[in-house]
Simulated scan of single mutants.
Amino acid sequence: MGISIAICELDSDESLCKEGKLNILKARLEDVSEYRRCADYDEVISADDAKREMGDEWEAFLKRNRLGSERENFLLSKMKNEEDIKRLRELAYREYSGWIDLNCLSPEEAKTVRELAGEDNLLNEWNVIPMDETNAICKRCAMSWDKGRGCIGNFGPNNSLLPGIADKYECSIVASIPELAETGRKLSPEEAKQLSEECKVLREKLPEEGKSPVRRYSGVVDRLETVADLCASKGVRLYFL
């Protein structure tokens, strides 16, 4: 297990992903019975029902739809032949995924569903953008502090010796990084300024710890200082996870 450095990118209007991340498209519930009209579903047909309907055409049906005979059921959306889909649709049943389209609901219903789902069961506009596009957006974003790779970067393993070294030189924030990763507490922009100062101290003191710590932790200190300076200048919080 390792520890990562992250920022609260939505604290800044300069974040190119902010609008997309705040635009919640769907929410997931265990029970969609009250919202079926707006719930996502797959049309599924059992292999037995399909086989009975197709009769002597069964093998040809499997071949033209590129389906395996060992399957217990089939998704109509995965079938290739439109005539077969039309023929089997009346025999299919709906299998709900739990995702509900919030745009299909009234504002009051959407608010209720979001609250029932919780933050971990929401799908936003940013989530559905292809990865190559999000990577390109991140590269040109002011909040992308990790050399254009995004707003989350690597700190190191849980057993990193850097916090212990930091404690030796009274660099309290760096010393507490393992604890911060456990609690998820967000550091304020003011604390980011302190973190930046601690990085300057550590850069000066690391050579006193020997060549190995310099090689191992100089890059980590650089990353910490970069993200700390960004957060301090932009008024953005940061955290470890």
Rank of each mutant, 00 (worst) to 15 (best):
M1N: 10
M1Q: 10
I7E: 01
E9W: 03
L10I: 06
E14V: 03
C17T: 09
G20A: 14
E30H: 09
V32M: 08
V32S: 13
E34F: 02
E34T: 03
E34A: 15
D40S: 08
D42Q: 13
V44H: 01
I45S: 02
I45A: 04
A50L: 04
W58R: 04
R64H: 10
N65M: 06
N65F: 01
N73F: 15
L76A: 08
L76T: 05
S77Y: 02
K80E: 15
K80V: 12
N81Q: 09
K86N: 15
L88M: 08
E90Y: 09
L91Y: 13
A92C: 06
S97F: 09
S97C: 03
P107V: 08
E119T: 12
D120C: 06
L123S: 07
C141Q: 09
D146G: 01
K147A: 11
G148W: 08
G150P: 07
G150S: 10
C151V: 03
C151L: 00
C151D: 07
G153P: 01
G156H: 05
N158T: 11
S160K: 11
G164M: 12
I165C: 04
D167C: 10
K168I: 01
Y169I: 06
C171R: 00
C171N: 03
A175T: 07
T183D: 09
R185H: 03
P189W: 05
E197Q: 12
E197P: 00
E198S: 04
L206E: 05
E209Y: 08
E209A: 02
V214M: 10
R215N: 12
Y217E: 02
G219V: 08
R223D: 11
T226L: 03
V227L: 12
A232F: 01
R237G: 10
F240T: 02
